[in-house]
Design a protein around this nucleic acid. Structure first.
Lengths: 161, 161
DNA sequence: CCAGAGTACATGCATTTGCATCTACTTTGA
DNA sequence: TCAAAGTAGATGCAAATGCATGTACTCTGG
Protein backbone atom coordinates (compact mmCIF):
# COMPACT_ATOMS: atom_id res chain seq x y z
CA UNK A 1 0.00 0.00 0.00
CA UNK A 2 1.20 3.47 -0.84
CA UNK A 3 0.10 7.05 -0.43
CA UNK A 4 -3.10 6.83 1.55
CA UNK A 5 -5.53 9.51 0.44
CA UNK A 6 -9.05 10.73 0.68
CA UNK A 7 -11.11 13.17 -1.31
CA UNK A 8 -10.46 16.09 1.02
CA UNK A 9 -7.05 15.48 2.56
CA UNK A 10 -3.92 15.92 0.53
CA UNK A 11 -1.46 13.11 1.24
CA UNK A 12 1.64 13.89 3.25
CA UNK A 13 4.38 14.87 0.84
CA UNK A 14 7.21 12.47 0.15
CA UNK A 15 10.86 13.45 0.36
CA UNK A 16 10.84 13.33 -3.38
CA UNK A 17 7.96 15.79 -3.70
CA UNK A 18 9.85 18.35 -1.67
CA UNK A 19 13.10 17.84 -3.56
CA UNK A 20 11.41 18.20 -6.93
CA UNK A 21 9.53 21.32 -5.93
CA UNK A 22 12.71 22.87 -4.61
CA UNK A 23 14.65 21.95 -7.72
CA UNK A 24 12.00 23.53 -9.90
CA UNK A 25 11.75 26.64 -7.76
CA UNK A 26 15.50 27.05 -7.77
CA UNK A 27 15.91 26.62 -11.53
CA UNK A 28 13.15 29.11 -12.20
CA UNK A 29 14.88 31.56 -9.92
CA UNK A 30 18.15 31.06 -11.80
CA UNK A 31 16.53 31.55 -15.19
CA UNK A 32 14.70 34.69 -14.15
CA UNK A 33 17.58 36.16 -12.16
CA UNK A 34 20.04 35.64 -14.98
CA UNK A 35 17.85 37.73 -17.25
CA UNK A 36 17.14 40.37 -14.67
CA UNK A 37 20.84 40.80 -13.99
CA UNK A 38 21.45 41.45 -17.64
CA UNK A 39 19.02 44.38 -17.61
CA UNK A 40 20.66 47.71 -18.45
CA UNK A 41 19.01 49.07 -15.31
CA UNK A 42 21.83 47.38 -13.40
CA UNK A 43 24.69 48.89 -15.32
CA UNK A 44 25.70 51.30 -12.60
CA UNK A 45 24.57 49.38 -9.53
CA UNK A 46 24.65 45.62 -9.01
CA UNK A 47 21.39 43.81 -8.38
CA UNK A 48 22.49 42.92 -4.85
CA UNK A 49 23.18 46.55 -4.07
CA UNK A 50 19.78 47.43 -5.49
CA UNK A 51 18.19 44.75 -3.39
CA UNK A 52 19.55 46.36 -0.25
CA UNK A 53 18.22 49.76 -1.29
CA UNK A 54 14.88 48.18 -2.09
CA UNK A 55 14.67 46.43 1.26
CA UNK A 56 15.51 49.65 3.06
CA UNK A 57 12.92 51.53 1.03
CA UNK A 58 10.08 49.42 2.30
CA UNK A 59 10.99 49.28 5.95
CA UNK A 60 10.73 51.19 9.22
CA UNK A 61 11.22 54.92 9.07
CA UNK A 62 14.51 54.83 10.86
CA UNK A 63 16.28 52.21 8.83
CA UNK A 64 17.36 48.66 9.44
CA UNK A 65 20.03 46.95 11.42
CA UNK A 66 22.73 45.17 9.51
CA UNK A 67 21.68 41.80 10.85
CA UNK A 68 18.05 42.38 9.90
CA UNK A 69 19.15 43.32 6.43
CA UNK A 70 21.19 40.17 6.31
CA UNK A 71 18.09 38.00 6.59
CA UNK A 72 16.87 39.23 3.23
CA UNK A 73 20.05 38.81 1.27
CA UNK A 74 22.09 35.76 0.33
CA UNK A 75 25.42 37.06 1.60
CA UNK A 76 27.72 36.34 4.50
CA UNK A 77 27.61 38.92 7.26
CA UNK A 78 31.04 40.24 6.37
CA UNK A 79 30.15 40.58 2.71
CA UNK A 80 27.04 42.54 3.52
CA UNK A 81 29.04 44.71 5.87
CA UNK A 82 31.31 45.69 3.02
CA UNK A 83 28.52 45.99 0.51
CA UNK A 84 26.87 48.54 2.79
CA UNK A 85 30.21 50.29 3.19
CA UNK A 86 30.34 50.68 -0.59
CA UNK A 87 26.79 52.03 -0.66
CA UNK A 88 27.76 54.53 1.98
CA UNK A 89 30.76 55.65 -0.03
CA UNK A 90 28.44 56.20 -2.96
CA UNK A 91 26.25 58.36 -0.74
CA UNK A 92 23.21 56.10 -1.02
CA UNK A 93 22.91 55.10 2.62
CA UNK A 94 24.08 56.34 6.00
CA UNK A 95 25.32 54.31 8.93
CA UNK A 96 24.88 55.41 12.50
CA UNK A 97 24.97 53.71 15.86
CA UNK A 98 21.72 52.10 16.89
CA UNK A 99 20.14 54.07 19.74
CA UNK A 100 19.31 51.11 21.96
CA UNK A 101 22.31 48.87 21.29
CA UNK A 102 25.75 50.35 20.95
CA UNK A 103 26.99 47.33 19.01
CA UNK A 104 24.40 47.82 16.31
CA UNK A 105 24.50 49.87 13.15
CA UNK A 106 21.38 51.46 11.79
CA UNK A 107 21.36 51.80 8.04
CA UNK A 108 19.14 54.37 6.37
CA UNK A 109 18.55 55.45 2.80
CA UNK A 110 19.75 58.92 1.94
CA UNK A 111 17.59 61.02 -0.34
CA UNK A 112 19.91 60.12 -3.20
CA UNK A 113 19.56 56.48 -2.25
CA UNK A 114 15.81 56.72 -2.25
CA UNK A 115 15.80 58.34 -5.66
CA UNK A 116 18.21 55.80 -7.06
CA UNK A 117 16.07 52.98 -5.73
CA UNK A 118 12.95 54.46 -7.30
CA UNK A 119 14.61 55.10 -10.61
CA UNK A 120 16.08 51.62 -10.94
CA UNK A 121 12.98 50.08 -9.41
CA UNK A 122 10.74 51.45 -12.12
CA UNK A 123 12.82 49.90 -14.88
CA UNK A 124 13.29 46.72 -12.89
CA UNK A 125 9.59 46.18 -12.37
CA UNK A 126 8.97 46.74 -16.04
CA UNK A 127 11.55 44.09 -16.87
CA UNK A 128 10.00 41.63 -14.43
CA UNK A 129 6.62 42.16 -16.04
CA UNK A 130 8.15 41.70 -19.47
CA UNK A 131 9.76 38.40 -18.47
CA UNK A 132 6.68 37.09 -16.71
CA UNK A 133 4.32 38.33 -19.38
CA UNK A 134 2.41 35.43 -20.87
CA UNK A 135 3.95 32.90 -18.52
CA UNK A 136 1.31 32.80 -15.81
CA UNK A 137 -2.12 34.36 -15.51
CA UNK A 138 -3.16 36.52 -12.59
CA UNK A 139 -4.56 33.64 -10.63
CA UNK A 140 -1.43 31.58 -11.08
CA UNK A 141 0.76 34.48 -10.04
CA UNK A 142 -1.30 34.90 -6.91
CA UNK A 143 -1.00 31.22 -6.15
CA UNK A 144 2.75 31.27 -6.75
CA UNK A 145 3.06 34.20 -4.41
CA UNK A 146 0.96 32.51 -1.78
CA UNK A 147 2.90 29.25 -1.89
CA UNK A 148 6.33 30.85 -1.82
CA UNK A 149 5.32 33.20 0.99
CA UNK A 150 4.00 30.28 2.97
CA UNK A 151 7.17 28.33 2.36
CA UNK A 152 9.39 31.20 3.41
CA UNK A 153 7.35 31.89 6.50
CA UNK A 154 7.47 28.30 7.57
CA UNK A 155 11.19 28.01 7.01
CA UNK A 156 12.02 31.25 8.79
CA UNK A 157 9.72 30.33 11.64
CA UNK A 158 10.77 26.75 12.19
CA UNK A 159 14.35 26.58 11.07
CA UNK A 160 16.58 29.19 12.67
CA UNK A 161 20.06 29.46 11.25
CA UNK B 1 -13.38 50.10 -16.34
CA UNK B 2 -10.71 47.80 -15.07
CA UNK B 3 -9.66 44.19 -15.35
CA UNK B 4 -12.33 42.63 -17.54
CA UNK B 5 -13.08 39.13 -16.35
CA UNK B 6 -15.43 36.22 -16.72
CA UNK B 7 -16.10 33.16 -14.64
CA UNK B 8 -13.62 31.05 -16.56
CA UNK B 9 -10.92 33.45 -17.66
CA UNK B 10 -8.41 34.74 -15.18
CA UNK B 11 -7.74 38.42 -15.66
CA UNK B 12 -4.52 39.51 -17.32
CA UNK B 13 -1.93 40.04 -14.61
CA UNK B 14 -0.85 43.54 -13.73
CA UNK B 15 2.76 44.63 -13.57
CA UNK B 16 2.34 44.62 -9.84
CA UNK B 17 1.15 41.03 -9.72
CA UNK B 18 4.27 39.87 -11.50
CA UNK B 19 6.58 41.96 -9.32
CA UNK B 20 5.03 40.68 -6.12
CA UNK B 21 5.13 37.07 -7.21
CA UNK B 22 8.78 37.43 -8.15
CA UNK B 23 9.66 39.15 -4.91
CA UNK B 24 8.03 36.36 -2.97
CA UNK B 25 9.65 33.63 -5.03
CA UNK B 26 13.03 35.24 -4.66
CA UNK B 27 12.80 35.71 -0.90
CA UNK B 28 11.69 32.14 -0.43
CA UNK B 29 14.65 31.00 -2.45
CA UNK B 30 17.00 33.09 -0.29
CA UNK B 31 15.55 31.75 2.94
CA UNK B 32 15.75 28.14 1.83
CA UNK B 33 19.14 28.45 0.14
CA UNK B 34 20.70 30.10 3.17
CA UNK B 35 19.72 27.12 5.29
CA UNK B 36 20.73 24.55 2.71
CA UNK B 37 24.15 26.12 2.38
CA UNK B 38 24.68 25.80 6.10
CA UNK B 39 24.14 22.04 5.91
CA UNK B 40 27.18 20.03 7.01
CA UNK B 41 26.79 18.10 3.76
CA UNK B 42 28.48 21.05 2.06
CA UNK B 43 31.53 21.22 4.29
CA UNK B 44 33.89 19.75 1.73
CA UNK B 45 32.22 20.88 -1.48
CA UNK B 46 30.35 24.12 -2.09
CA UNK B 47 26.71 23.99 -3.08
CA UNK B 48 27.51 25.41 -6.51
CA UNK B 49 30.06 22.70 -7.10
CA UNK B 50 27.51 20.15 -5.98
CA UNK B 51 24.96 21.64 -8.32
CA UNK B 52 27.25 21.06 -11.27
CA UNK B 53 27.79 17.46 -10.27
CA UNK B 54 24.05 17.04 -9.81
CA UNK B 55 23.27 18.50 -13.20
CA UNK B 56 25.84 16.25 -14.84
CA UNK B 57 24.43 13.24 -13.00
CA UNK B 58 21.04 13.60 -14.61
CA UNK B 59 22.09 14.28 -18.17
CA UNK B 60 23.14 12.61 -21.41
CA UNK B 61 25.48 9.67 -21.10
CA UNK B 62 28.40 11.50 -22.58
CA UNK B 63 28.33 14.60 -20.44
CA UNK B 64 27.47 18.21 -21.04
CA UNK B 65 29.02 21.13 -22.82
CA UNK B 66 30.22 24.00 -20.71
CA UNK B 67 27.67 26.34 -22.21
CA UNK B 68 24.82 23.94 -21.60
CA UNK B 69 25.93 23.61 -18.01
CA UNK B 70 26.01 27.37 -17.80
CA UNK B 71 22.28 27.60 -18.43
CA UNK B 72 21.57 25.84 -15.16
CA UNK B 73 23.88 27.80 -12.93
CA UNK B 74 23.91 31.43 -11.88
CA UNK B 75 27.53 32.10 -12.80
CA UNK B 76 29.37 33.98 -15.50
CA UNK B 77 30.89 31.81 -18.19
CA UNK B 78 34.40 32.44 -16.95
CA UNK B 79 33.49 31.60 -13.38
CA UNK B 80 31.95 28.32 -14.41
CA UNK B 81 35.00 27.58 -16.53
CA UNK B 82 37.17 27.85 -13.46
CA UNK B 83 34.74 26.07 -11.20
CA UNK B 84 34.86 23.11 -13.55
CA UNK B 85 38.64 23.37 -13.62
CA UNK B 86 38.62 22.98 -9.83
CA UNK B 87 36.30 20.00 -10.04
CA UNK B 88 38.68 18.43 -12.53
CA UNK B 89 41.63 18.99 -10.21
CA UNK B 90 39.65 17.23 -7.49
CA UNK B 91 39.12 14.33 -9.84
CA UNK B 92 35.35 14.66 -9.90
CA UNK B 93 34.90 15.46 -13.59
CA UNK B 94 36.85 15.09 -16.81
CA UNK B 95 37.10 17.53 -19.68
CA UNK B 96 37.61 16.47 -23.25
CA UNK B 97 37.12 18.04 -26.63
CA UNK B 98 33.61 17.78 -27.98
CA UNK B 99 33.54 15.36 -30.94
CA UNK B 100 31.49 17.51 -33.28
CA UNK B 101 32.79 20.96 -32.42
CA UNK B 102 36.47 21.47 -31.75
CA UNK B 103 35.79 24.63 -29.78
CA UNK B 104 33.63 22.80 -27.28
CA UNK B 105 34.49 20.99 -24.09
CA UNK B 106 32.55 17.98 -22.96
CA UNK B 107 32.37 17.59 -19.21
CA UNK B 108 31.68 14.21 -17.68
CA UNK B 109 31.41 12.88 -14.16
CA UNK B 110 34.16 10.52 -13.10
CA UNK B 111 33.22 7.53 -10.98
CA UNK B 112 34.45 9.45 -7.93
CA UNK B 113 32.35 12.39 -9.01
CA UNK B 114 29.28 10.25 -9.35
CA UNK B 115 29.80 8.77 -5.91
CA UNK B 116 30.39 12.15 -4.36
CA UNK B 117 27.22 13.47 -5.95
CA UNK B 118 25.21 10.54 -4.63
CA UNK B 119 26.64 10.79 -1.17
CA UNK B 120 26.05 14.51 -0.80
CA UNK B 121 22.77 14.26 -2.65
CA UNK B 122 21.32 11.85 -0.13
CA UNK B 123 22.01 14.17 2.76
CA UNK B 124 20.94 17.18 0.76
CA UNK B 125 17.56 15.73 -0.11
CA UNK B 126 16.99 14.82 3.50
CA UNK B 127 17.72 18.40 4.49
CA UNK B 128 15.34 19.76 1.86
CA UNK B 129 12.60 17.50 3.14
CA UNK B 130 13.33 18.60 6.69
CA UNK B 131 13.08 22.29 5.75
CA UNK B 132 9.95 21.82 3.66
CA UNK B 133 8.33 19.45 6.12
CA UNK B 134 5.07 20.90 7.34
CA UNK B 135 5.27 23.93 5.09
CA UNK B 136 3.23 22.71 2.15
CA UNK B 137 1.17 19.61 1.58
CA UNK B 138 1.69 17.28 -1.37
CA UNK B 139 -0.81 19.07 -3.52
CA UNK B 140 0.73 22.45 -2.85
CA UNK B 141 4.20 21.15 -3.59
CA UNK B 142 2.96 19.80 -6.88
CA UNK B 143 1.37 23.12 -7.72
CA UNK B 144 4.52 25.02 -6.76
CA UNK B 145 6.52 22.74 -8.99
CA UNK B 146 4.11 23.15 -11.85
CA UNK B 147 4.05 26.94 -11.63
CA UNK B 148 7.79 27.37 -11.35
CA UNK B 149 8.42 24.92 -14.16
CA UNK B 150 5.96 26.78 -16.35
CA UNK B 151 7.59 30.08 -15.50
CA UNK B 152 11.06 28.80 -16.25
CA UNK B 153 9.98 27.23 -19.49
CA UNK B 154 8.32 30.40 -20.65
CA UNK B 155 11.27 32.56 -19.74
CA UNK B 156 13.83 30.29 -21.35
CA UNK B 157 11.67 29.94 -24.43
CA UNK B 158 10.74 33.57 -24.98
CA UNK B 159 13.57 35.55 -23.52
CA UNK B 160 16.97 34.53 -24.83
CA UNK B 161 19.95 36.05 -23.09
C1' DC C 1 28.13 43.74 40.93
C1' DC C 2 30.81 41.12 37.97
C1' DA C 3 32.94 37.17 35.35
C1' DG C 4 31.90 34.57 31.53
C1' DA C 5 29.05 33.67 27.69
C1' DG C 6 26.79 35.67 23.85
C1' DT C 7 25.90 39.11 20.05
C1' DA C 8 26.93 42.86 16.44
C1' DC C 9 29.76 44.33 13.39
C1' DA C 10 34.63 45.01 11.29
C1' DT C 11 38.88 43.32 9.26
C1' DG C 12 42.97 40.40 7.41
C1' DC C 13 43.52 37.27 4.05
C1' DA C 14 42.85 33.60 0.71
C1' DT C 15 39.46 32.19 -2.63
C1' DT C 16 35.97 33.08 -5.97
C1' DT C 17 33.76 35.94 -9.20
C1' DG C 18 33.01 38.87 -13.23
C1' DC C 19 34.52 41.87 -16.95
C1' DA C 20 37.17 42.51 -20.79
C1' DT C 21 39.72 40.37 -23.90
C1' DC C 22 42.16 36.63 -26.27
C1' DT C 23 42.58 32.42 -29.13
C1' DA C 24 40.74 28.94 -31.75
C1' DC C 25 37.24 27.14 -34.29
C1' DT C 26 32.74 27.43 -37.11
C1' DT C 27 29.23 29.56 -39.93
C1' DT C 28 27.66 32.74 -43.34
C1' DG C 29 27.21 34.97 -47.59
C1' DA C 30 28.98 37.20 -51.57
C1' DT D 1 36.16 29.64 -51.74
C1' DC D 2 37.25 32.72 -48.51
C1' DA D 3 36.84 36.91 -45.74
C1' DA D 4 33.97 38.56 -42.13
C1' DA D 5 31.07 37.65 -38.42
C1' DG D 6 29.81 34.61 -34.82
C1' DT D 7 30.53 31.20 -31.01
C1' DA D 8 33.12 28.27 -27.28
C1' DG D 9 35.96 28.50 -23.92
C1' DA D 10 40.37 30.33 -21.41
C1' DT D 11 42.90 33.94 -19.03
C1' DG D 12 44.73 38.50 -16.84
C1' DC D 13 43.26 41.30 -13.52
C1' DA D 14 40.46 43.98 -10.35
C1' DA D 15 36.59 43.50 -7.39
C1' DA D 16 33.62 40.85 -4.41
C1' DT D 17 33.07 37.09 -1.27
C1' DG D 18 33.57 34.03 2.80
C1' DC D 19 36.07 32.23 6.69
C1' DA D 20 38.33 32.99 10.76
C1' DT D 21 39.07 36.11 14.00
C1' DG D 22 39.15 40.64 16.39
C1' DT D 23 36.94 44.37 19.06
C1' DA D 24 33.37 46.31 21.49
C1' DC D 25 29.27 45.96 23.66
C1' DT D 26 25.26 43.33 26.19
C1' DC D 27 23.20 39.71 28.85
C1' DT D 28 23.08 36.12 32.47
C1' DG D 29 23.70 33.65 36.75
C1' DG D 30 25.67 33.64 41.00
Amino acid sequence: MNAPSSATTSPAPSVRDAAEAWESLFRAQVAVMRRLQADPAFRGLGIKEYDVLFTLSGCPESGLRLNELNDHVLLAQSSLSRLVERLERKGLVTRRAAPDDARGILITLTEAGRETQRRIGREHVREIARLFGGALDAEELAELKRLTAKLREHVVENHPL
